[in-house]
Structure formats: structure tokens, C-alpha cells
């Protein structure tokens, strides 16, 4: 029981001030490490302030001091009881060679589901175009896809000057921003128990299937591959990976077959979600550059064979990267050794 309040504060204030100063240092310098003596002192100050809080709480008539102490104890508690590791320095090489592909493989079921949903969308889009061609104008959001594919190909191949000249960077930036926004939405919609993510993937599939069959039926398959493959071989998997992240979030929310609580499940998947969406963003920056600076050029500027070969190579390399890189501990150890680090990060 308290105590002479004035005397109590006079005695304890120096300790509170010292704890406050240590907390401010820790909070302002991310990654700042205390030495052993400082850790001991910090723990002592935390224990003492917690004890002061317990003492003052028994006398509930002084809310201002209690809130002040609660704030101090809460901040110190966060520092002392945080057991999750914080890496002091992010290493891109380690992340790219291990963390990202490993994370992708860890949630392969979710990826398979995104592929399945997109394929269903593709089939639906193709069916619509095959059975009701005028409906193309309703399901395709871009005006330049509403006309005849053959007319468009003839138009693209007849140009003698660079249509993209003076607009490439701007177009590329717009593509990057738009695609990354769509990917973030695909991830975020996972919070709707995955329904929003699945709808978005289905709709993307509808557009893809409708466009693809439209061009195939018009005999423009080579143009289609030359146009879509260079950027699509990265962009489409990127959207699928974003959908994968959305479904991982949805699985954490639903918790089917998990023994963890909702908060634990969210806590467990959060590093994987950030890893996946970061990888997606990088992929989409690359796809945006390729689409603006390469995909929009057709014969006679660029031979379709070259564009198709480029796109196919990208796709094969991406598959190898996602399936093989960082696959075993030896590989991980080699990558760690090569980067001068130790241990896996995922």
C-alpha cells in the first residue's frame, strides 16, 4: 500500500527517467544492441518500474502517474519479452537465393489453387468468345482488344515509325504501378476469406482466355505469343504469386486444420506474405520494363521468333528459379557461404 506519494515520486523518478532514456535510445536506433551490463541495468529498471506500477495500482486514486508508469512498463515489456528475431541488416542476395523461392514452395498448394482458378477463368473467357463473339466487348476492359485481331495485327505490322517513342518510360511506369496495385489487391483480398482473391484471379483468367482464343481463332497465334510472352511470362506468374499470398492469408484466417489461434496464425504467415509480395513487386517492375520497351514492338521491327524465344527463356528460367533455387540445405549453405552469412532466414 502507498505511501507518501510525493516522497515516492521523488525517490523513484530518477529510475523512471533512466528507463525512459534507455527506451528512447532503443526506439530511435533500429537494430541498436545493448551490451551485457546495459541489458542487466535495463532489466533492473524494468523490474523496478513494474514494481512501482504494482504499488501505485493498489492505490487507484492517482491515474496520471499510473498511466505514465503503464506506458513506461509497456514499452520496456515490448523490448524485453520480444523473442522474434530481428535481422539487423537485410541481405538481398540471401533473400533472393533462399527466402523467396523457399517461401513460394512452402505454400505450393495455394499457388496450385491460384493456377486452377485462373485456368477456370481462362476456360470461361474462351467459351464466351467461342460461343458469343459480341460479348467480347463486355468482358474485355481495353478498347484496343474489342476489334478484329487480324486488323490490329495488320495495323501493328504496317507502322514504319516508333509509336512508343517519347512515351516508353511513362507507359512502363503506368504498367508497373497498375500491376503492383492489382497484386497488392489480390493479396489484401485474402482477408475476405480468399473469396475476393479468387474472384480477381478468375476475372484475370477470363480476360486472358478471351484474348488468347480470339487471336487463335483469327489465325494470329504467332503474333499473340510474340506480343504476350516477353512480359506475360513474368507478369502472369507474378499475379499468380500475389494470389498465392492472398490465399495464404485466407488460410491463416480460416485456420482449417491448424492448432494455432487466429493471432498466432497471422503472426506465423506474416513474414511469408511480405516475402511473396516483395518478390511480386520486383517481378512486375521487370515485366513493366519489358512490356514498354520490348513487347510493343512487332515485325518488321522485331522478329516474332526472337520475342517468343525471349519470353520462353524467361519462363523456363523463372520456373527453374522458383522450383530449384535454394532447394536443399547444401545449396542454402553454399549461398550463405558465398554471401558470407550463416543460417537460413525463412
Amino acid at each position: 500500500m502507498i505511501i507518501d506519494l510525493e516522497q515516492f515520486i521523488a525517490n523513484e523518478q530518477p529510475y523512471w527517467d533512466e528507463l525512459q532514456a534507455m527506451l528512447t535510445t532503443l526506439e530511435q536506433r533500429t537494430g541498436h544492441q545493448l551490451d551485457l551490463n546495459a541489458v542487466k541495468r535495463f532489466n533492473y529498471l524494468y523490474q523496478r518500474t513494474a514494481s512501482d506500477l504494482a504499488r501505485i495500482s493498489t492505490f487507484s486514486a492517482e491515474p496520471t502517474t499510473r498511466r505514465y508508469l503503464e506506458n513506461l512498463v509497456a514499452r520496456a515489456y515490448a523490448e524485453i519479452h520480444e523473442a522474434r528475431q530481428v535481422r539487423s541488416r537485410f541481405q538481398f542476395g540471401l533473400w533472393a537465393l533462399q527466402t523467396f523461392p523457399q517461401t513460394f514452395r512452402r505454400h505450393i498448394r495455394a499457388f496450385q489453387m491460384t493456377v486452377l482458378m485462373t485456368m477456370i477463368g481462362c476456360a470461361f473467357g474462351a467459351l464466351v468468345v467461342a460461343t458469343d463473339a459480341p460479348a467480347k466487348g463486355v468482358i474485355l476492359p481495353f478498347d484496343h482488344l474489342h476489334g478484329s485481331p487480324s486488323d490490329r495485327v495488320a495495323d501493328e505490322e504496317s507502322v514504319t515509325e516508333d509509336r512508343m517513342k517519347g512515351h516508353r518510360s511513362e507507359f512502363s511506369a503506368q504498367l508497373m504501378a497498375n500491376n503492383i496495385r492489382v497484386s497488392i489487391t489480390a493479396l489484401a483480398l485474402g482477408i475476405t476469406w480468399g473469396l475476393g482473391t479468387l474472384v480477381l484471379l478468375f476475372y484475370n483468367g477470363v480476360i486472358l482466355g478471351a484474348v488468347a482464343l480470339d487471336y487463335v481463332l483469327s489465325g494470329e497465334t504467332v503474333f499473340l505469343l510474340g506480343w504476350l510472352l516477353p512480359h506475360g511470362s513474368i507478369e502472369i506468374p507474378a499475379i499468380l504469386l500475389a494470389g498465392q499470398a492472398g490465399l495464404v492469408l485466407a488460410h491463416a484466417l480460416i485456420g482449417f486444420g491448424s492448432e494455432h489461434t487466429l493471432r498466432e496464425r497471422f503472426r506465423l504467415v506474416s513474414p511469408d506474405l511480405v516475402t511473396l509480395i516483395a518478390g511480386v513487386a520486383i517481378m512486375l517492375v521487370w515485366a513493366g520494363l519489358i512490356e514498354a520497351f520490348f513487347s510493343q514492338y512487332h515485325e518488321p521491327f522485331l522478329p516474332y521468333s526472337l520475342k517468343i524465344a525471349f519470353g520462353a527463356t524467361e519462363l523456363v528460367l523463372l520456373c527453374i528459379y522458383l522450383v530449384r533455387v535454394g532447394r536443399d540445405d547444401k545449396g542454402g549453405a553454399r549461398a550463405s557461404a558465398a554471401l558470407g552469412t550463416a543460417g537460413a532466414t525463412s
Binding site: 523490448e79 520480444e82 489484401a188 483480398l189 482477408i191 475476393g196 506474416s270 506474405l273 511480405v274 509480395i277
Partner: peptide, 18 residues
């Protein structure tokens, strides 16, 4: 009451779109 992690900050700001 634990320390806020970068992952948490990123996720709460990405889900903002919903």
C-alpha cells in the same frame, strides 16, 4: 504488447486497400 515488426507494418498497410 510486443515490439512491432516490419512484417506487421507492411501487412497492415497493404491490407489498407481493402
Amino acid at each position: 504488447g510486443l515490439r512491432l515488426q516490419l512484417n506487421q507494418i507492411v501487412i497492415r498497410n497493404l491490407v489498407r486497400v481493402v
